[in-house]
Design a protein around this nucleic acid. Sequence first.
RNA 1: GCCGCCUUAGCUCAGUUGGUUAGAGCGCCAGAUUGUGGAUCUGGAGGUCCUCCGUUCAAUCCGGAGAGGCGGUACCA
Length: 503
Amino acid sequence: MTDASKPQGSRPEARNPRGFIDRRARDLVAERQILAAVSAVYERYGFEPLDSPAFEYADALGKFLPDADRPNEGVFALQDDPDADGNGQWMALRYDLTAPLARFAAQNWETLPKPFRRYAFGPVWRNEKPGPGRYREFVQCDADTVGSARPEADAEIIAMAAEGLEAAGVPAGGAILKINNRKLLNGLMASAGVTDEGQKLAVLRAVDKLDRLGPDGVRLLLGEGRKDESGAFTKGAGLGGGAAERVLAFTAAGAGRGDTLGQLSNVIGGSVEGDEGLAELEAIDRALVSLGVGADRAVFDPSVVRGLEYYTGAVFEAELLLGTTDERGQPVRFGSVGGGGRYDDLIARFTGERVPATGFSFGVSRLAAALRAAGRDAAVELRGPVVIIAFDEARMADYFAVAGELRAAGVPAEVYLGSSGMRAQMKYADRRLSPAAVIIGGDEFAAGTATVKDLDLGRALSAGVTDNAAWRTDRPGQVTVPRAELVATIREILDAQALAPAP
RNA sequence: GCCGCCUUAGCUCAGUUGGUUAGAGCGCCAGAUUGUGGAUCUGGAGGUCCUCCGUUCAAUCCGGAGAGGCGGUACCA
């Protein structure tokens, strides 16, 4: 085996790049169903589809602009057409669908109908450390309204997101949209004397961890800092005790609708920006009520932060409440499957003109994985084609004719194209989860017949069979019919299987 | 980025206190069965023991460095 046919050490290892995965039929069918269902909902709301390139010039993507020192920080970037000095335009794979939308809207602003409503889906790439269920390439689906400052635009996005998740297969009560407004926390921090941008960020980060660390952990992070179990120390926001308690009181204002608004107005009190945020949430509440979205589907939750600078007003997050378990039966918290909010400054980066915008995006693969883990993907069932056994070299033309007839009748079919014997061919059909196999050998040709084997019937019967000889001679589910009745016979088998539970 | 654990067959893992030919289960291939899936039995293929350097008569095993994987943490557009 150490001969020339196997040069040692010179073979590439067949493996995926770190953080990238192959997705097979099962995953793809599930994702396609989700996208089809969600697209239909979004279009019903008047959103038009848009596709944009995988690459954008790096400056258009915004703050993750690669530079000479760290060209790959966060994004996958390359230099387009570099000259002799290595100078070229930096371009990068998009890391979300919102930045490309901002570029597109700015570029076509003069001719777009405004407000502009579009949805988009496709892969996005992030050059960062992968984690469990977290990859460097994944499919996102995003919907935005550009050019409307009305809180109703936010409410409609929220309502549409809720409806979209249900259409994708999340059962009623399986997810909740949590809504907050950046202006509330900004107002609160302003009245507490927090003006430093770095300190503001630290406060946001601390609040974001409320669900994981609890109020005590967040209190530490708002103050001096916190040391976790592994001994790593996270520097805190450096807030004084009074200010920290005010922030905590704010985040504790409950997750409801009208009652939460009342509590928030007590805690916020005073600042102009805070009052503005409160008024926006009240308007969103009214719109949600008229859109038929109750507190069972969307609530106000002051602990929702959603990322950093970018958002300027309302923010929302979709949390999955479905009970899910992993392969070992351990419960898994999927948590957030999507989020969004109002970003009024993103397009101004290009045009200098402030354009209000709001949107929501979710991870399609992640949602599919969550639905699978929750056992909600039963509708996705992969059946193989009808397999025509390649019995006789000289008769291949006849086999292809059978395949053609079946395909013309709308039945997925294929002629076995390997070189193995019949046993292996049957095994192949079984493994493909084929509904039926067609056997036309010398006997059938002589008699002008075809033998059709109902593989599901055999699958069902095989459980009770212990003797191989009997299993073979019984030939379960097998019928021989005149060649002319072949397609009709298979049709009957398929119709019968459609009524039976999946094998 | 930081911390910890791990790396032996396609997969899950044994094992060798450093010594001739490194094992199991599952999976795969074939036969028992000229033309039939599951089960069973029999046989077979499949390994640079992650890589490099060092120590040694001798390294899959000991030491060092590196790579890759997993988990936590930080970041998350």
